[in-house]
């Protein structure tokens, strides 16, 4: 959009506002990063100065004496498996709904859409009882099932929109070429919605990676804790060592921030996918 160049004051105000907001976002993150390299004495004595050196002692402490690496690994396992399971089962269901005409097709889509409106958090009590009886409490598999199930409605919704838009003649052509239904799906149709798979994957991976609530309820033993939940333990143990705490936060934030910076366009598209028609 063009705007008039002569509106000098307006432009100045705009940039002040934007740059101010940028500082408000980046400075705290920068301080978190810097404080992780400092000793407690430095943090208390010279809180705003840069660290004397890129001192990695805090990180060594975390790596050798805490469970944070374990938490990171658990979070990675849970997120990767959940998203993989989610994309496979979600694509299958979305494909059935959007590429075939069958009796009850509308009922089936309604069934999946209904899931969009159910906040699973509020069903945590029955879920807990049920998971307990299934032996899935204090078990990463339990988290994986929950995350997959609660992310399915949005995934089916996003993917069926894209699948429906693929031309029917492609499918017909593959059918005449002799490809089985499975092969048509896997080899011809699904590769064409890769962008949608990325969007649906990010849309769900970020909240799963960041989730705190379900591990809080379902995970008890330290070696099964995920990152967000494990941080509370870590903060309890190191409550007076600010340097280590800042380093822990930085370490916890690092994986997703790195991926975000590399793939920011996709992340933004993915995470706002549900809110933009």
């Amino acid at each position: 959009m063009e705007h008039r160049r002569n509106a000098g004051l307006e432009t100045w105000l705009m940039y002040i506002f934007l740059i101010g907001s940028t500082i408000a976002v980046l400075y705290p993150i920068f301080m978190m990063l810097m404080s992780g390299f400092k000793t407690n004495a430095e943090i208390f004595g010279a809180p705003f100065s840069l660290p004397k050196s890129l001192n990695l002692d805090n990180y060594k402490t975390i790596w050798t004496t805490t469970d944070v690496p374990r938490y990171l690994l658990n979070s990675a396992i849970v997120t990767i498996i959940s998203v993989a399971l989610l994309l496979v089962t979600g694509t299958m269901a979305a494909y059935a709904i959007s590429r075939y005409k069958f009796r009850g097709a509308i009922m089936v889509s309604m069934f999946f859409l209904a899931g969009l409106m159910l906040p699973l958090r509020l069903a945590i009590i029955p879920l807990f009882v049920q998971m307990k009886s299934m032996g899935l409490v204090d078990n990463l598999l339990g988290l994986i099932f929950i995350y997959t199930a609660m992310s399915l409605p949005s995934t089916v919704f996003i993917l069926s929109g894209f699948l429906r838009a693929l031309p029917g003649e492609l499918e017909d052509s593959a059918r005449v070429d002799g490809a089985s239904e499975l092969r048509i799906m896997v080899e011809i149709m699904v590769p064409l919605i890769t962008p949608a798979l990325v969007i649906a994957g990010i849309y769900n991976a970020v909240p799963i990676w960041n989730d705190f609530f379900f591990p809080l309820i379902f995970i008890q033993t330290p070696e099964n804790r995920t990152l967000a939940q494990g941080l509370t333990t870590f903060f309890g143990e190191y409550s007076v060592n600010f340097g280590v705490l800042y380093a822990g936060l930085t370490l916890a934030a690092l994986p997703i921030v790195v991926v975000f910076i590399i793939q920011s366009r996709r992340f933004i598209a993915g995470m706002t996918a549900g809110a933009i028609k």
Binding site: V88, T89, G90, M92, A93, Y95, A96, I97, V108, F111, F112, G115, L118, L120, L122, A123, I124, I125, P126, L127, V129, Q130, F145, I146, T148, A149, M150, L152, P153, V156
Partner: peptide, 21 residues
């Protein structure tokens, strides 16, 4: 085959708990 895994997950881990609440 296509619909069962997703439907099963959704029923067991979302619909049944929501109903049970």
């Amino acid at each position: 085959l296509l619909l069962t895994p997703a439907a099963l997950l959704l029923i067991v881990f979302v619909f049944i708990p929501m109903g049970s609440a």
